[in-house]
Amino acid sequence: MKLKSTLILVTVLFSLPGASQEQNLIAEGAQPELIADGFKFTEGPATDAEGNVYFTDQPNNRIHKWSTKDNVVTVFMEDAGRSNGLYFDAEGNLFAAADKHSEIWKITPKKEVSVLLEGFRGKRFNGPNDLWISPDGGIFFTDPFYKRDYWSHSEQPIKEQRVYYLTPNRKGLFIAAEGLVKPNGIIGTPDGKTVYIADIEDNKTWSYSIGADGKLENKTLFAELGSDGMTMDEQGNLYLTGDGVTVFNKAGEKILHIPVDKEWTANVTFGGLDHQTLFITAMDSVFGLKMNVKGAK
């Protein structure tokens, strides 16, 4: 991969509803900086406790790590299950939506891999795509179907494309939400009370309250926009991806658009020593943008 200092212009849409109160999200004079490129398709950025950012190069079956110490990207894991979404738990374990065999993986800091889940009620998952770990340790993950050329099957294993919940003790697996066309990106609030799910094929993002056993309730339309991956800042603003990065405040008002000079922006997370840099995975590249807000904790 090559490291570059290419800059991409950022446009803040001050005319959008709610923009007057949120127009200073981006640090003064900051623009997205190219951190690294030369990948095939970057996805799933996740940040550890030290601010290091891990992301996947899904077609090349690798997980990479960007280090806060030297600003260098290295290979963290080969043969990474063709992982998409990643997320860290409080103990520093990395969880992955491993697409190769439609599994949920746990990867310890020593890179020891265990398969937590591979199917539901005797059927293989459609293809776990993204996941979020709630404060109590429960895991929510989306299970859309995107046909892969490396699978031996072509039919969708489970008719419904759903969201599932794995209990903190890892003994219970429940349907958390259904009735969606193709659930993809997912993120929840730090208090563990609300989760946001993007239905990318229906071009909508929904909010849910989290009930008993991870059952998602009070489905409410949050935004008339779908998303691939997503993240949240400390103010509760939601960052959606696809055509660059689009930011909505807690009321569901569009307040900012960050253009990215790539055909598709797949995912975002906050990282760095101060957790105040927005990391953007887009096609063959990863970008960083200095912000005035930190990621939600």
Rank of each mutant, 00 (worst) to 15 (best):
M1G: 10
K2F: 14
K4N: 11
S5L: 14
I8P: 00
V10W: 09
S15K: 14
S15D: 15
P17K: 15
Q21K: 14
E22M: 09
Q23Y: 15
Q23W: 14
N24P: 11
I26C: 10
I26V: 15
A27G: 06
E28S: 14
G29F: 13
I35S: 04
V53Y: 04
T56E: 01
D57H: 07
N60S: 15
N61D: 15
K69Q: 15
D70S: 13
N71H: 14
V73Y: 03
T74H: 05
M77P: 07
D79Q: 13
A80R: 08
R82H: 06
G85D: 01
F88E: 06
F95E: 06
A96Y: 02
A98E: 03
K100M: 11
H101N: 10
S102C: 06
I107A: 04
I107P: 09
I107Q: 01
V113T: 15
V115W: 00
E118Q: 11
F120I: 01
F120E: 06
R121P: 00
R121L: 08
G122W: 02
G127C: 00
G127D: 01
N129E: 05
D130E: 08
L131A: 11
L131K: 04
S134G: 13
D136I: 03
G137D: 09
G138P: 02
F140Y: 15
D143C: 07
P144N: 08
F145T: 00
H153C: 03
H153I: 07
E155K: 14
Q156V: 03
E160W: 03
V163Q: 00
P168S: 08
P168F: 09
N169C: 04
R170D: 05
G172V: 12
L173D: 05
G179E: 07
G179F: 02
L180T: 00
L180K: 00
K182D: 05
K182M: 07
I186W: 11
I187F: 15
I187W: 15
P190D: 05
D191T: 11
G192M: 12
A198N: 08
N203C: 03
S207K: 15
D213T: 10
K215R: 14
T220L: 09
L221K: 12
L221W: 05
F222R: 03
G229P: 03
G229I: 05
M230T: 01
T231W: 12
N237C: 15
L238S: 09
T241A: 09
T241Y: 12
G242F: 11
D243P: 08
V245N: 03
V245P: 01
T246C: 13
V247E: 01
A251D: 13
G252A: 11
K254Y: 07
K254E: 10
I255G: 04
H257L: 12
A266L: 03
V268D: 09
F270Q: 00
F270C: 03
H275E: 08
T277E: 13
T277H: 08
T281W: 13
T281V: 13
D284M: 04
F287E: 06
K294R: 12
G295M: 07
G295V: 04
G295H: 05
A296G: 04
K297Y: 05
